[in-house]
Design a protein around this nucleic acid. Structure first.
Lengths: 164, 164
DNA sequence: ACTAGTTGTAACTAATTTGGTTACAACTGA
DNA sequence: TCAGTTGTAACCAAATTAGTTACAACTAGT
């Protein structure tokens, strides 16, 4: 007699929406530029720290450049900060990489039946609230500058290396 | 001589991430149950107001049921509220339909180089902030009950029908 | 002027979500 | 028993995301 038991272990649970990592990659890049000001920051060098492909970095650098946060030298290569660290908020980075459209974090179903009282009015009522929720989130990002973030980061780096 | 001019108009701009409309559909459903308490709320009837397919409604009803927000009668059909309106916050609905995992609104790139000081520390520093931002957003949803939303909705319905 | 190294982009892929749809077994109440 | 309904599975098209290859254009130093 044979008894076969198969157990399937799924690595991840159900998938859900997430804001693109372009944002965190952007913050990572700016932190690198700030903390190692004397390096030659090519997309390849940056990709080494972020743990991804140089093209991904060039793409994000493109967004940051378009938003006036960095300068990128074509040909010779290398990126540098285009603005003081305390004049870059996390919201600036967030907006620059275009991960979420203004006022559109939530997808509200858009074909409710206009001849049903609820269907005809739910959109406007909900939108008002959801935009408020989105703004609350973005407000937290706006309240933090890259300077503050880099300070926290530097402290953590020191603490960690001291603890070894 | 022929001159042909082709103008391509794109309906939408670039696409970006959005939180699934399951959430707004869920709110729509609960509003219907509250405002028309004497109807026989089959998935087909609800779908008529939401402007979608009955199966979509049954799926969302499944989430709401699992979260204890509604009762659904199999066979004879029909959904009813399982909890008082003022004991359902928008956050309850949001959580029930599983659109965003707890603490995971933002996707932080997950293979930074551990041998680079920045790469080794950026994740924890960022996460702290991003979870805070997410909580701020969810706090707004938590502060509003379905009762309040239905009141605003009812007022708007009255105002509109009076204005005609 | 050449050349090596780099950026900016286009094109493509695999994985994944989402909303929609069809189909159907199981259930319920008259 | 039967008509109507729910709960699900299976499938589809559209779209995003991250990753990758490829390559023209550019720049600085020799």
């Amino acid at each position: 007699m044979n008894l076969v038991v198969t157990i399937i272990v799924t690595t991840k649970g159900c998938y859900v929406m997430q804001i693109s990592s372009r944002f965190s990659v952007g913050v990572h890049i700016l932190s690198l530029l700030a903390i190692n000001p004397n390096e030659h920051h090519t997309s390849e060098w940056i990709a080494g720290s972020v743990g991804t492909n140089p093209v991904i970095i060039r793409r994000v650098l493109g967004y940051l450049k378009k938003a006036g946060l960095v300068h990128v030298r074509a040909g010779s290569g290398g990126a540098t900060l285009a603005r003081e660290l305390d004049e870059i908020t996390l919201l600036d980075v967030y907006r620059s990489v275009e991960v979420v459209e203004e006022g559109k974090l939530f997808h509200v179903h858009d074909q409710p039946n206009p001849s049903c009282p609820v269907g005809a009015n739910i959109e406007t009522v909900l939108q008002l609230l959801l935009v408020k929720a989105q703004h609350a989130m973005e407000g937290v990002l706006e309240a933090v500058t890259m300077k503050e973030l880099v300070e926290v980061l530097s402290n953590q780096i020191k603490t960690k290396s001291a603890g070894e």
